[in-house]
């Protein structure tokens, strides 16, 4: 079993059309870090760069001390869960999870065992043969988490995966993430726009503004009276 790996963005420059971004940050190994910031501040881009969906124009990205800047997404030690479209609509729950083990879907007995275990852990036992359209929104994200479990990578990136769910369901899912994190101790980076999500699971925070890292620190510090002014301003305006 792998444990978490530290992530370092070393003067990473990236531009998308008009938007220019410069990230320089260190993300602590085996912690849950919440990434927050206004829309367009670059939250998703940050995750896409780490996952390898975007290539920086300058700078390096290191995971566990290894330079992954030029690696393909599939070869990086990273799993990512998106807000939607985490599943192939025509494949069953079991097959969708199985893809985490073999992109050709050629599964060994050992793989099948791992898949059954992951499905049980995420509360999906008995739904192996269902198609995504026969599942609820929360269940679909559970399938994605089950696949994260069978892939067993040291880094888990979550790009607002529960934003479309109701409050109670979202809390359940966050608890599931926290539980999984306690067992596996992987590095989790969670993008969210809800402060209560961050407070519920994250030990550390990164606040992005206008394509740069505006502040980092402990979650408690962020929400405390001495938290970064820009962050407090952000959640303040959000709440009114």
């Amino acid at each position: 079993m792998t444990t978490g790996a530290a992530i370092q963005l070393d003067h990473v420059a990236f531009s998308y059309g008009e938007a220019v971004m410069n990230f320089d940050a260190a993300i602590e190994a085996s912690a849950i870090t919440a990434v927050m910031g206004p829309s367009g501040s670059g939250k998703s881009t940050l995750l896409n760069l780490v996952a390898g969906f975007e290539t920086p124009q300058a700078g390096r990205i290191l995971i566990g001390g290894m330079d992954v800047t030029s690696l393909e997404p599939a070869t990086r030690p990273v799993s990512m869960v998106f807000q939607e479209n985490n599943l192939f609509a025509h494949l069953s729950v079991e097959q969708n999870v199985g893809l985490g083990r073999s992109p050709a879907l050629r599964l060994t007995a050992e793989d099948r065992e791992a898949i059954a275990g992951a499905l049980a852990r995420t509360g999906l036992a008995g739904k192996e043969k269902r198609l995504p359209r026969e599942l609820s929104g929360g269940e679909r994200q559970r399938v994605a988490l089950a696949r994260v479990l069978v892939r067993d990578r040291p880094v888990l990136l979550l790009d607002e995966p529960f934003a479309a769910l109701g409050p109670a369901l979202r809390d359940d899912m966050l608890d599931l993430v926290r539980g999984v994190h306690e067992e596996r101790e992987m590095t989790v980076v969670l993008v969210t726009h809800r402060p209560e999500d961050a407070r519920r699971v994250a030990q550390r925070m990164i606040f992005l503004d206008n394509g740069t890292v505006a502040a980092t620190g402990e979650t408690e510090f962020f929400f405390g009276p001495d938290g970064p002014a820009a962050f407090r301003h952000y959640i303040g305006t959000e709440q009114t």
């Binding site: 996952a51 969906f53 393909e72 599939a74 990512m80 609509a89 025509h90 992109p103 050709a104």
Partner: peptide, 25 residues
């Protein structure tokens, strides 16, 4: 649009992609 990132992440490409992802759709 739906599957591009997923395929990249899971390393589903070439023949596998054609067989598992593109053909059914």
């Amino acid at each position: 649009e739906r599957h591009e990132r997923l395929c990249a992440q899971l390393g589903i490409s070439g023949w596998n992609r054609l067989r598992l992802v593109e053909w059914p759709v």
